[in-house]
Write a protein that binds this DNA or RNA. Structure first.
Length: 918
RNA sequence: GAGGCUGUAGCUCAGUUGGUUUAGAGCACUAGCUUGACAGGCUAGGGGUCAUGGGUUCGAAUCCCUUCAGCCUCACCA
């Protein structure tokens, strides 16, 4: 057989992914096994794979593959999110480029464009996940806007409306002037920005000599003012209260009122009140019964109410009004000012507070439920500290109702209808529109007939609410709807609650919290006696944000992110998986150090960590080549090989044992590093070197005994299975190279190895031998003696060293790996040797060069000083009576042993020193 | 303004309820190796007053407080 001396990920990755898919290994159906379920955080249907996805999905794949190897029924449900604002914005832009305006299209026309686009480009990201090796059950791929999931949205909307938790109200909402829709509070991102504070003088009506100066950073809204407010205790303005002021430029008269909301210290102490364009002013206005003058259109331009600058954009108007105020002499002062400005998460437009009619979900009960679920441990957070953030948002002082309506078309239309009256308007009660909510128009009609007391109404008299629901109003149902739980609970009762949710902490409010709420709201109603738990998932593993070495979030716009697929191209999927994982711990942000091109300042598609992963694959590949290159014969197993086999089995079991514990706490990078060390250092550097047959020249080696060979293949197989969740492709490939396999005998469907009983004494003896070998090598290095030159080693006769060398295979191990020609026990220190200590055993290495006495003296003196310091430290502890009396006995005993060892070592070093000095 | 997280080797990080020979790994660095699986390799080495100052304790990287630095969340801001 001839294998290339480099592992080739490209070939094997496509080959094995296709093989796994062909064998239907990713698919899950309910059966008698224990389920292990993960629902993917659905990426935007139009998204492309980025570093965050890579991290996230690598972790999910590790958990899923491990569960599968453990014999569980592993089910990883993939899918995409329709991402209403983001996708609609993209489609609108695309149509505009084709010369089509959204406003010229009907709703249905627009939606067919959007679906066409989604069908063409959507789901690309899922294809990209396959490159990463994600073992999702692709047959179960879902989309938040497909029929069954949309039906569920309508169902829960109607249900919540019936329960009195959904209401429609006129509120100050965050308005996105670009997308022309309301936003929830969570969709507003605040950033500090430089701005100016305008000090503007308003004349007092009837006395043009008197004026009042207010400070504002939004001068373009003065035309919407309906009062000026001052603090009741502010002496400066007492005489003006009750008088009227005139708005500059338009000379509209507004009252001067007093309100404790005003901060005397800030600005001029006088505050213009603009109820239509500021949430706080709106409240002040309500308290004082002020009129609301709205001077802005939905797109952020000024309307006729403004009287001046009509049609101008708000920011253009700001510049223009500055000039007008300067000319009129009303602009008294300009002050630099920094303030935080809200932007739309999706379009980045500056958010405008706007008074609009929107649908809200009452969050009070939901929030309490959400808090309880985590507090009582039904949902566990990893890391636990995420609770703080969660609590802050959900506690009753902070929680706010969820604005769930959006003025968009791409999404689930709100199932509410209004009755059209004879004059073409909507039927009202006490001046308020009445909405009839129902699962179908007929249901709504039934309601309408009763409420309006008119039996002649037909569906033609009803007009449907134009709005759609917030994207998250569909994704909060994801753990239920991916199993069609609102229609049929057959699968839900098997898979619910899911096991682990893996997601970034940035969507803890948007998504995680709300899924928990939805789970508690409906799972019991749906499952009843079959309910295994109300929580949608037992554990939440929060990944950190992937950042660059300057700690900036990796993003396309910054150009600081390597291209995910290019990385896979360069290092292989396994290499990238290794790289991602080796720098990640739960909850902490991940610094993914990828070098930058010094010229373009863009990230290169390179990574040291991924390179390490690639090298690791290569290392394992070459271990395979080595083993497969040996000749095998039915000869007796030498003691050194027997020792090696017993040791590597124990070592592997120890690592496996620790891995179990780490896995249970989601310490995945610990598990991976354990495997890495085990394979590279223990298996390749020690084990294989030990059993490696001697070279006899002419490219030939002695044959290996069959027993050792079989054991080696067995251990290698075990290593591949336990590494498989992390690096699925290379392990599968090696698995198949190790032995001829029957169809279906694949690495990914083996059983996870279980740790056996460990011979601690053997492991300890082996470690001692390793130490002796390392020290021999160190002396060779220091003295410039070639590793090829065989040396003589003398061992001082003592209980422990005799015991060590008596252990089967140890002597042979020392001779082989230390390259010794002789190993002899002595009572006296032989001449012309270099002495060293290993444990409390004393060793003498014969070197055929002249010993530099001075250097030896220096080395031994340093060693001596170390032990003196060490003994002093331990001695101090032991002479402290309180330590001896208070510390647990085993701790004290250990310290005594440390002291005894230290003293013995010191004695041995001093002995050598004396000898040297003579 | 309220709250949270982090600070350990040049870099990225471990260090699990305080006690495992006066702190570990990988990368980077240094020295040696035409080694017959692998130079994407092998062998060895140097490098840390565990941010700071206190406290609790027989014992602190680990627990408590101070200060400093970085990051984050929420709220408010005329």
């Amino acid at each position: 057989m001839s294998l290339s001396n480099r592992y080739n990920p490209k070939e094997t990755e496509t080959k094995w992914y296709a093989h796994w898919e062909k064998n239907n290994y990713f698919h899950s159906e309910p059966d008698e096994r224990e389920p292990y379920t993960i629902v993917i955080p659905p990426p935007n249907v139009t998204g492309v794979l980025h570093m965050g996805h890579m991290l996230n999905n690598t972790i999910q794949d590790i958990l899923i593959r491990r569960a599968r190897l453990q014999g569980k029924n592993a089910c990883w449900v993939p899918g995409t999110d329709h991402a209403s604002i983001a996708t609609e914005a993209k489609v609108v832009k695309l149509l505009r480029e084709q010369g089509i305006k959204k406003s010229d299209l009907t709703r249905d026309e627009f939606l067919s464009h959007a679906f066409a686009w989604k069908d063409k480009y959507g789901g690309m990201i899922l294809q990209q996940l396959k490159r990463l090796g994600a073992s999702c059950d692709w047959e179960r791929t879902r989309f938040t806007m497909e029929e069954s999931l949309s039906k569920a949205v309508v169902k829960v909307f109607v249900d919540l409306h019936k329960k009195g938790k959904i209401y429609r109200g006129l509120r100050m909402t965050n308005w996105d002037v670009e997308a022309l829709t309301a936003l929830s509070n969570e969709e507003v991102i605040y950033r500090d920005e430089h701005s100016q504070l305008f000090h503007i003088r308003y004349d007092i009506e009837g006395d043009s000599n008197e004026g009042i100066i207010i400070a504002t950073q939004r001068p373009e809204t003065i035309m919407a003012d309906t009062a000026i407010a001052v603090h009741p205790d502010d002496e400066r303005f007492k005489h003006l209260i009750g008088k009227n002021a005139l708005i500059p430029l338009i000379n509209r008269s507004i009252p001067i009122i007093e309100d404790t909301y005003v901060d005397i210290e800030f600005g001029t102490g006088a505050l213009k009140i603009t109820p239509a364009h500021d949430p706080n002013d709106y409240e002040v206005g309500q308290r004082h019964g002020l009129e609301v003058v709205d001077i802005l259109n939905a797109n952020g331009t000024l309307n006729e109410n403004a009287q001046i600058l009509v049609g101008e954009d708000r920011f253009v108007a700001r510049k223009k009004i500055k000039k007008l105020l300067e000319e009129s002499g009303n602009l008294v002062k300009l002050e630099d000012y920094t303030t935080s400005i809200g932007h739309s998460e999706r379009t980045d437009a500056v958010v405008e507070p706007r008074l609009t009619l929107q649908w809200y979900l009452d969050m009070k009960d939901f929030a309490a439920t959400g808090l309880k679920a985590v507090k009582n441990g039904e949902v566990k957070f990893y890391p636990e500290s995420m609770w703080n953030m969660y609590y802050q948002w959900l506690n009753e002082d902070n929680i706010r109702d969820w604005c769930i309506s959006r003025q968009l078309w791409w999404g689930q239309q709100i199932p509410a209808w209004y009755v059209r009256t004879a004059d073409g308007r909507r039927w009202t009660v006490d001046g308020q529109e009445v909405a009839f909510v129902g699962g179908t128009v007929e249901e709504a009609l039934g309601e309408a007939k009763i409420k309006t007391c008119s039996n002649n109404l037909t569906v033609k008299d009803l007009v449907r609410d134009e709005d759609v629901v917030d994207t998250w109003f569909s994704s909060w149902l994801w753990p239920i709807t991916v199993f069609d739980g609102f229609e049929n609970t057959d699968e839900l009762k098997y898979y619910y609650p899911t096991n682990t949710l893996v997601t970034g902490w940035d969507i803890i409010f948007f998504w995680v919290a709300r899924m928990i709420m939805a789970g508690y709201e409906w799972s019991e109603e749906l499952l009843g006696a079959d309910l295994k738990g109300k929580q949608p998932f037992n554990d939440v593993y929060f990944t950190g944000m992937v950042r660059d070495n300057k700690r900036r979030k990796m993003s396309k716009s910054l150009g600081n992110s390597p291209d995910a697929l290019e990385l896979i191209e360069n290092y292989g999927a396994d290499g990238v998986r290794f790289g991602m994982l080796s720098c990640s711990s739960a909850g902490n942000d991940i610094i993914f150090d990828a070098p930058f091109d010094p010229v373009t300042k863009k990230s290169l598609n390179e990574s040291k960590l991924c390179e390490q992963g690639r090298n690791f694959c290569n290392k394992m590949w070459n271990a395979l080549r080595l083993i497969k290159g040996w000749e095998i014969e039915d000869v007796e197993q030498p003691p050194i090989n027997e020792l090696a086999v017993r040791w590597i089995k124990d070592k592997a079991d120890t690592v496996m044992d620790n891995a179990e514990k780490s896995f249970d706490q989601y310490r995945l990078s610990d598990v991976l590093m354990g495997q890495y060390q085990l394979i590279w250092s223990d298996f390749c550097s020690w084990y294989l070197e030990m059993i490696k047959p001697a070279y006899i020249g002419d490219g030939k080696s002695k044959p290996l005994d069959r027993k050792t060979y079989e054991a080696t293949i067995g251990v290698f197989e075990k290593l591949m299975v336990s590494l498989h969740p992390f690096m699925p492709f290379v392990t599968e490939e090696i698995w198949h190279q190790l032995r001829q396999r029957q169809e279906g005998n694949d690495c990914m469907v083996q059983s996870y190895p279980k740790a056996g009983k460990i011979d601690e004494e053997l492991v300890a003896a082996f470690e001692k031998a390793k130490d002796v070998i390392s020290k021999i090598r160190e002396i060779r290095n220091n003295k410039g003696i070639s590793p090829n030159e065989a040396l003589k080693l003398f061992v001082e006769k003592s209980g422990p060293s005799e015991k060590l060398l008596d252990k089967g295979g140890i002597k042979e191990m020392l001779m082989k790996l230390g390259n010794l020609s002789e190993l002899t026990m002595v009572n006296e220190e032989p001449s012309n040797t270099v002495s060293f200590l290993s444990g409390t055993g004393k060793y003498f290495l014969e070197v055929n060069i002249e010993i530099d006495a001075e250097a030896e003296l220096k080395r031994l003196t340093e060693e001596k000083n170390y032990y003196i310091g060490f003994i002093k430290g331990v001695g101090k502890k032991l002479s402290n009576e309180r330590f001896v009396n208070n510390a647990p006995a085993p701790v004290v005993e250990k310290e005594r042993q440390k002291l005894a060892d230290g003293e013995e070592k010191l004695r041995l070093v001093e002995e050598s020193l004396e000898k040297l000095e003579v």
